[in-house]
Design a protein around this nucleic acid. Structure first.
Lengths: 204, 204
DNA sequence: GAAATTGTTGACCGAACGGTTTATAATGAG
DNA sequence: CTCATTATAAACCGTTCGGTCAACAATTTC
């Protein structure tokens, strides 16, 4: 009943998300949002509440899509090397294969808002945990198959790998460089594939 | 000659830096700055130009102090393990040993401003390069002494370690956890100490 | 002590901020 | 067709933004 929306909610939401992704929460004004979403103020506030709420919806949307993409790229997890390669492909894409080199919206938001936006922080933490768990699954399988190092538990290896990926995405905002990114993704694999022999303590 | 300043420039600058560190550039208003610096508007603008200029000065100041602290903590580089341990101590402190868990001002600013603030970006890049070079020196020495792995060049190992540290500092804004941080700093060492044997490709 | 110079203060500025309201337009239900 | 309901558009709101300015205060030089 009543008058129907003239705009596509998902499209508008996606446009808002891209703006927030590029400039961050604070630096994106309501006017910026109206411009990229192509609506007038009344419509925006009626459909999404306010700027902060719109941001949270856009963020959640992004996180869900990203997580799906990660799972999909990791495949069925039966081949740990392939899964990790797939996952790192997503990271590589975020770092430097996009037309806009904006890193990862999640990472950007962790840095900008986690400390003072409880709701955003909650949403982000839930996401970070599930991603780290996904990585842990891949690592665990790789350890079981004997392909990945086993001198560190899967959980702690996943923790470290997660942080490494986080670093790649964060620094990509300043240093977006395909060859560097390639080396970094390769090294992620190296970390896991390198078996721990007794370290050579043959100093001096 | 003429009337002297009533405030300590360094103290005021440091207070501004802390505010920017905690909230970021956009979310810190001129009023916030006046409050923490304890001056009136005219004084601020006379002494530091404008908000953006004040930010750049505060950032440069922070970076120089941080770099000095890193060099100092790394010692004379004659003992690579000790140097790396010292460096990771600085990281650990930024991640969770401070009263305020604000990560690293440099990392935060890379994420918030690198994409749209050319001057900040320049300042940051210069810093990131010198830090990576410092790490590379430590790694190189560790390779020469036979303590660190040699299957990857010092530059590329440093690159990866740098990214890993960057990740620790970035994610610390959402996950400030001493035990996790401890594990992560330990693992940084593990990465370097693990010698590369032929990876066990004994799958299936 | 007078002049020159610089620092401090608080009032003031236009613009942009996020958000609301009002009038009007478009639809479905009766 | 009418009515209830929802969407749109634009005017409008008070507040805060970053920044300037004019009056006054403190110092050095002469």
């Amino acid at each position: 009943m009543a008058r129907p929306r003239e705009f596509d909610t998902d499209e508008a939401l996606n446009a808002a998300m891209l703006a927030f992704w590029e400039r961050g929460y604070e630096a994106t004004s309501t006017q910026d949002l109206l411009d990229v979403m192509g609506l007038s103020k009344g419509s925006l506030y009626k459909a999404f509440g306010d700027k902060h709420n719109l941001f949270l919806i856009a963020l959640q949307n992004y996180l869900d899509h990203l997580y799906e993409k990660m799972k999909q790229s990791a495949g069925d997890l039966s081949d740990p090397v392939l899964s990790l390669t797939g996952l790192m492909g997503v990271v590589d894409n975020l770092c430097c294969r996009q037309e806009m080199a904006n890193g990862c919206f999640a990472v950007n938001t962790v840095v900008e808002l986690s400390q003072r936006d409880e709701k955003a922080s909650e949403i982000l933490k839930r996401h970070l945990v599930r991603v780290e768990k996904l990585i842990a699954k891949i690592v665990k399988n790789g350890q079981v198959s004997g392909q990945f190092r086993s001198d560190v538990s899967a959980e702690h290896l996943a923790e470290a790998l997660f942080v490494y990926i986080f670093g790649m995405l964060a620094q990509s905002r300043a240093i977006a460089n395909p060859s560097r990114t390639k080396r970094l993704t390769n090294f992620a694999m190296t970390i896991l594939l390198t078996q721990s022999c007794a370290p050579a303590k043959n100093k001096a």
